[in-house]
């Protein structure tokens, strides 16, 4: 397996500060009119007790990590196959999140055109006291070299 050596690889911890404006822009881009993301007066009256970020917002945190975790892989062969979020509490404006990326699994499955390799990349997102906020789990399909060449 080409990716086997990557299992357990961990990036350096980085900090992500959550801004109210970023939450608003993220919701606007989706076209999500839910007032929970923008209206403090409304959000305060709900079970959330204040503004929260949309469910897929943690994806913006992973993008902010830069080349924090260098996998040394060919980006042209990488396909985002699945995405999962495991929530412990909502993300809120003003949060200072401590984040770390890790290759939690690599595995192989038999595909139509031969074996396909998969890479599971977790971003663990915690508060400053170390309590988990959310885990963002990205499943990447690493396509065989032959398949990529045929496409190009």
């Amino acid at each position: 397996m080409e990716l086997a050596h990557l299992k357990g690889l961990t990036g350096a911890e980085f900090t992500f500060e959550v801004e109210k404006r970023h939450i608003r822009q993220f919701a606007e881009a989706i076209g999500d009119p839910n007032p929970l993301y923008v209206d403090e007066a409304y959000a305060t009256t709900t079970i959330y007790g204040g503004i929260i970020a949309p469910l897929t917002f943690p994806i913006a945190i992973g993008q902010d990590s830069g080349e924090n975790l260098d996998l040394g892989l060919d980006h042209k062969r990488m396909l985002h196959g699945e995405q999962e979020f495991i929530y412990h509490r909502p993300i809120r404006p003003g949060d200072k999140l401590h984040c770390q990326m890790k290759v939690s699994d690599v595995y192989e499955r038999q595909g139509k055109k031969g074996p396909m390799e998969f890479l599971v990349l977790d971003t663990e997102i915690k508060d400053p006291s170390g309590e988990l906020v959310v885990i963002s789990r990205t499943n990447i399909i690493y396509r065989p070299l032959a398949g990529v060449a045929a496409n190009n």
Partner: peptide
């Protein structure tokens, strides 16, 4: 997935809280 999240939060409203969401 963001569209699905809008839909999920519309269904959940302020009575239910999502604990796991995947696509």
């Amino acid at each position: 997935m963001g569209f699905l999240s809008e839909y999920v939060m519309k269904l959940a409203g302020t009575t239910a809280v999502p604990t796991n969401f995947k696509m």
